[in-house]
Each structure stands twice: as structure tokens, then as C-alpha cells.
Nucleic acid binder design. Structure first.
Lengths: 234, 234, 234, 234
DNA sequence: TATGAATGAGAATTCATTCAT
DNA sequence: TATGAATGAATTCTCATTCAT
């Protein structure tokens, strides 16, 4: 389905008129990513996408069939990018605590640098993942980080630095959650709390806080003292 | 179209056309809340709202001016509801640990029972809080919980149950984040991870995890050891 | 039909709720005059009229039936006003040349002070006098000036100051035309010629010019020669 | 809907939908001219324009953006036509008196043949030349006649046939005014005066009157000179 | 491949007018 | 008289999509 895969699969010789089909597709995709992430699926305009891609609407339909399929292609490409970035992360190179910290920072920085990821996901959730569910590709693109994180947690636990019983998926979700909510809801939070949560200072504080929360949570229980968790679960 | 067709809730005989302005306004608001939360601002249809409210489009403009203002009214009412619910919470009645646990559960349960809150916020963020920024009302409706939470944290710390140096707003945001992300992105997360995160079992696990994360983080450092925060921030 | 006549004809006792029916009608009429003259019949808004009249739409329908009838009432009142003003003019008190000059100045000043007269007439002409044709009242309100002007012309001719063969109606129309066109098309003329025709200076010049045109035309032919017009129109 | 339904003017076989952009634009413009001139800007209906142009509403927006811009396009085309017609006039070919007479007749006949010019101007004035002010085109289309008329006046004066001190622009406006008012207000004038001012007879009289007014005004004052009117009408 | 032109269905919004009290 | 509420029928404008070349 994904159009991103098309170029590689079409080795057929290009006809004379073609300037650069791949480039056109890519620029449509880039324009669509911007448009969808800024306006959502419902608010996006095919016209604007074509204009921004410096092509015409017809091309858009030629390559992508229709608006929804284009939206899916955008989602797939967006997921592909974050997965690719995650692959660059080497959490196992460092000590466990450091590995977790890296993951937190990576997540934070990625969201910060790729705000379209947040809004596209929001849009797709509004549509109950209707598009993603149709996509084999994305389902196959399971994050490689879950397993790596599980390994980090295991090591840390063996070294007595982490508590036991931590589910890697839950933790992964929590780490994502802490950044996602803050950055994705930045506008409303700022409006409601009357503070500028997007300032450099505020961001530094947020990153520090999130790190403390996760690492604080992962600390093993105090050997001799009363286990906080025991009292928490009577 | 006439409200006269409505069921028995209105004992007094009703004329052909309803003259109960308040009721009409309320039902438009309710219908709009549904529509906007399901389809977003761009995807919402004024026609559907009118139909669902058992009135006609014209009344919607009569009372609310236009679609955007109606959207703002929906946002304001939605905020008013969660703030009202928060007021019912008595975090200070119980021990600090219990207070925090209550807040976590309240947040989780509220989002679960009011999924429209999540999607409406997402929509508003897509629009960069354009509507909320115009609303005095909402800005005045600062959450009462921040201060209460600060008090809970202070007490807990005095009792040696919580660590020091915790910012109440950051913690409040984090607590919200953990629920928000999971519930709001339920569809995509389920699609991507190939698990049903909406099952009762999965939800129970999630609530437990979140509670552990927050309370685990709040545990004070081991009395004799170096403060965790210092080691966290070299 | 004219509502302006209503108060006088309804001596019946006013019911308790009445504040001042006449005043209400008058203020609706005044508001409608403004609205119709500014936006034309098609562009006028019943809502705005009601608001401007500080009453509600229902009253407007109560008194005037509908928008078109209201428009007619406005026309009638407008005509009544100019006819009343014309009656104040005493062209026969002065010498003929002075009388004509007075008429020119009166026309000019009236149009200047009552721009609504021009635009309302334009609107009514757009509608091919559909409303006026229905109005007995207006047809009965023939300008008293035509006959007076005829008398002025006759006197002037007898005194050798005016040429003969001048049709009073044609002259009346021409005098109106010279002011009407300039003032009524002020905006487009200014735009097209790139001059401000509405300045005090420009207006003074225009009035002088118009007076010269009319009086220049009325000059008799040279005493010694045969009057060309006499031979032209036996 | 399809232009294919049109008569035989198009010899070559036509596909179902017209691809002749220019023709479509022109027919929209023609239809709009009719509609706007008959109903004014406010009263004009986009739907009717599309129907009359044998196209669909969408094309109208495709080519002209919106109703107001279309209105401006109509104005511009209308001005362009009268300016073009004015260029055909050769006032300097004849004797001065004859030149002025030609201008009067041209104006009269043009307004008679193009009543839309009058109503469109009235509409634009109702809107305070809002559209024309935005139009470079029209401002650049200053009438070529003003200067020609000035030249005619100068010549006539040199020949002792015209008075001195006549401003060409003022005279041009006056000539236009005399026709414009009579023809443009034909309906109301006829209604008010109870005469049919549109009859051939009435029109002949009007033209004669206007000519007399202007030429009568232009006569030089000097008693001892050649009778301007005799030489003017051989 | 590429592109301007075309379109039907539908979207938000407006309007004059009437109802019920 | 007076008024807020209600309404159906338009009205302008938009949109995704397709046609013809």
C-alpha cells in the first residue's frame, strides 16, 4: 500500500515526459504531511497540498488514489521515520540508568523536532486508527525499542539499580506519555495555566522532571525499610 | 423536528414548537459536544448537530452565532464539567499516599468516562488553542487541584513519606499524561502493538502501573543514602 | 397605504401596553430609510432595521406587513419630505433669473443634505418603479414646482430675460439631472477621474457651472436677430 | 448544463463538456452583466448567473473567485466597452458645434443601447465605488473624451462660436448627466409625472432639449458677433 | 506524465417571515 | 402591543474528484 515503497518496485523505464516521478511523489508526501499535521484529516485541503507540492491535484490522485490513501501514506512514512530514528539509538551501550535516560531524552527530542508526529497520531486516533488498521506495513513496524528496553531493565535489575516487576511496554508507553502530553497539549496547557510552557526554561524543567519520575520510579525498594509499594497495595 | 415528539419527560402539555430556550440550548450543546468530539472541528457537520439536537440548523446560529463559537462553548462546558468534578475530590481527607492515589484514579476514571474530553482537547490543540485563548471563562477556571496537590505533597514530605522538591504542577501534568496518552491513543497503540489495550484486564494493569510509577517516584530517598535527585542531576 | 398617515387616522384609544405607537412607527421608518438608502432593497436587512429602530422584527411586520411594503412607505415618506420642502420655495417672489437660480440651489442643497433621496430613487428605478406604481399617494404628489417654474419662465420671457419655447418639465428634469448625476455618482466619478469631487472647492465649482449652464441656456437670442427657436418650433 | 446543447455556431464536433475556457468565461461575464444590471449586487443570484451562462456555479468561482470579484469584472468590462466606443468618436472631424452635438447624441444613444451601464454604475455608487477603487484597470481607463472635448471647446472659442471659460470635465459631466438622469430614472419619473417618458416622441423631445441646453449655454455672450446658433444649424 | 477545466454533492450561513405567549 | 424563539427555503461558497487533451 505504501507509496513510499513504490519507486523501488517500479524499475520500468520512465517515459519521456517524466521529469522525476520519485521527486514528485516525495514532494507531494512532504506537502501532505505538513497539511495533515496542521489541519487534521478533515481540515486538510487537497488543493493546498497540490499547491505546496508545486504540482497539480491530478498528480496527487495519480499517485495516491485519494485523500484517505494519501493520509495513510503520510502516516506510514511518519512511522517509518521514527522507527528508523529509534534504530539509531543504542541503549545497550551504556549503563542501564544511562540507557533509560537516553530513551527519555530521545523521545522528548524527537517529539520536539517532529511535532507532526504528535498531531498526525491525534488525527489518526480521532479516526479510531481506521487507516493504520488497514496498513500491514505499520503493524510490521513494531518498535524495536520494547525489547531493547526489556533488556535494559533486566540488566539494571541484575545490577541492583532497578526495581523488579517492571513491564517494558508499560514503561515505554509511560515515557512516551510524559513527553507527548506536555508537548502535544502545549497550547491548551499554556492557555489554561497562564504560563508559557514552551519556553526553553520550562522545557528544561520538564525534561528534568520526567527523568526524575522515571528513574525515581525505577529505583529499587529500600532494602531495610518498609516497602513503599507494599503500603501502597494493602 | 418538533420537540413535542420527545418522550414523557415533559409532563405539561407542549405546544407544537418548544419555547423552552434553555433546554434547546442545552441539547444543541450536548449534540455539538458529541459531534465535535467524534469528528473534530473540521469534520463536524452543523447539520448533524442540529438533527441530533432535534432542532434545526437555524437555532444553532441563533444561539451560538457560528460553528466556531459553538465549538468554544463546547470546550467551555467541557472544562466546566471536569473542574466541577475535581471540586468533589477531597484529597486532603486521607493520608498523603492515599490522596495521590485518589487523584490518579480520578483522572483515569474521568478520562475513561468522558472520552470527549480527550478528543476535544486534541482538536483544540490542533488549532493551537485558538478558541480557548479567546475565552476568559476557561482561563479563570484554573484547576483547584494544583494547590491541593501541593498541600498533599507538603504533608507527605513532612511525614517522611514523600521525597522533597516535587513541583505540584509538573506532577499534576504527569499524572494526567499517563492516563491521557494511553486512553487517547488507545486505537493507534492497539493497532501498532497488536494488543487490545482497551480490555478490562489491560486497563487494570495500566492503572496499577501508573500508580506504581507515581508513588514509586514519590518515595523518599533512603535516609542514609545520597539524595536520588542529586545523583540524577550530576 | 402610507403609514405616515396612520396616526392621524387612528383616534381609537391606545391599549395599556402602548408606549407610543406613533413614535415606534416613526423610528422604524427612519431606520428603514437609512438601511434601504445605504444597502438598497435587496441588500437591506430586516434585522438591522429592527435593531436600529430599537424595537424587534415583529413590530416591523406588525406595522408594515413586509419588507416591500416598508420600502414603499419609506419611498412615500421620502417623496413627501421633498415635496414639502419644495413648497417652502417661493420662486415667484424674486426676479425670474433669481428664481431659476434659487431652484438650482435648492435642488443642489437638498440632494446634498438628503443623499438618501438619490439612492432610494436609484433603488426604485432598479425595480422599475414597481413600488411607486402601486402608490396613489406619490402619484398625487406631483411636484408643485413644475407649474411655478412655467410661470417663472413665462415672466422671464415677457421681460426679455429668457428665451422662448422652454418646456418647464424638461428644464426641471435638466436642473435635477445636473445635481443628481454629480452627487449620486460622486464615488465612481471620483474613482474614475482620480479627483475628489466631494471637496468643498469642487462643489462650489460644480454649483457655479450648473448655474451657468442653465442660465446661459435661458439667455434669449440676440435681440436684433430672428429667434432661431421660434422658427424651429412654430 | 453542457455547452454541447448550444446551437450551430460551433461546427466542429464538441465533447460533452466544453473545454473552451475563454468562451465560458465570456458567457459567465455576459450573464453576470445582465443579472447584476437587473438586480443590483445584493439582489443578483449566483445561481441564476450560472444557469444563464449555461455552466455551473462552480465554474463561476473557478474563474472569478467570488460574487464581488465577478461584479468588479463586470464593471471593468462595462467600462472597457464604453471607452472603446468613445474611441470611435471623432469629434474633431467636424465643426465645433457639430462636435458637441455628436457627443451629446453619442452619450444619449449609448445609454439608450446599454442600459446596463446606468444600473451598474448606480449599484457601484451604492457601494461607494468600493470595487472600482480596487481596480487599477478602470482608473487607467480615463475617458479620452475629456481632452478631445477641451480641444473642441478651444477651437469653437477661437472661431467665436463658443463662450470662454468652459471647463471640459464639468461640461462632459453635464452632458452625461442630462441623459443619465432621464434614462436612468425613467421609471420613477414616468410614474411620478404620469407621462410615458420612454416613448419615441418623448425621447426625440428630450434629445432636442438637451442639445439646446448645451449649445445654448455654449453660445458666446457678445451681442455683436455672429449668431452662434445660426452658424451651428445651417 | 502532466494539466487546466469541469462538476455534483454538500457545507456553512443568511433571510424574511411566523409562532406562541 | 410587545417579544424571544422558531423555521424552511435559499444563498454563497467549498470540496474531493474526474474529464479531455
Amino acid at each position: 500500500m505504501s507509496v513510499a515503497a513504490l519507486p523501488a518496485e517500479s524499475p520500468r523505464p520512465r517515459p519521456r515526459a517524466s521529469r522525476d516521478a520519485g521527486r514528485n511523489q516525495a514532494s507531494i508526501l512532504a506537502a501532505a504531511t505538513q497539511e495533515f499535521s496542521r489541519y487534521g484529516l478533515g481540515g486538510a485541503r487537497v488543493d493546498r497540498i497540490a499547491t505546496r507540492a508545486r504540482t497539480n491535484k491530478r498528480m496527487l490522485y495519480y499517485y495516491f488514489g485519494n485523500k484517505e490513501t494519501l493520509f495513510l501514506a503520510v502516516l506510514e512514512a511518519t512511522y517509518a521515520r521514527i522507527r528508523a530514528a529509534e534504530k539509531e539509538l543504542s541503549l545497550l551501550d551504556a549503563a542501564p540508568v544511562e540507557g533509560v535516560r537516553r530513551l527519555i531524552e530521545f523521545t522528548w527530542n524527537y517529539y520536539l523536532a517532529h511535532p507532526e508526529f504528535l498531531t498526525l497520531l491525534n488525527s489518526e486516533n480521532l479516526h479510531r486508527a481506521r487507516h493504520l488498521k488497514r496498513s500491514r506495513e505499520v503493524r510490521a513496524m513494531n518498535s524495536p525499542l520494547i525489547e531493547t528496553l526489556a533488556e535494559v531493565l533486566a540488566r539494571g535489575r541484575r545490577r541492583g539499580e532497578f526495581r523488579s516487576g517492571v513491564d517494558a511496554l508499560q514503561l515505554y508507553i509511560s515515557i512516551a506519555a510524559l513527553s507527548y502530553f506536555y508537548l502535544g497539549n502545549n497550547h491548551t496547557l499554556s492557555a489554561v495555566f497562564g504560563r508559557d510552557l514552551a519556553s526553553a526554561e520550562a522545557r528544561r524543567e520538564r525534561l528534568a522532571h520526567m527523568t526524575e519520575v522515571i528513574l525515581g520510579y525505577l529505583r529499587p525498594a529500600r532494602p531495610a525499610s518498609i516497602d513503599a509499594r507494599r503500603s501502597a497495595r494493602p
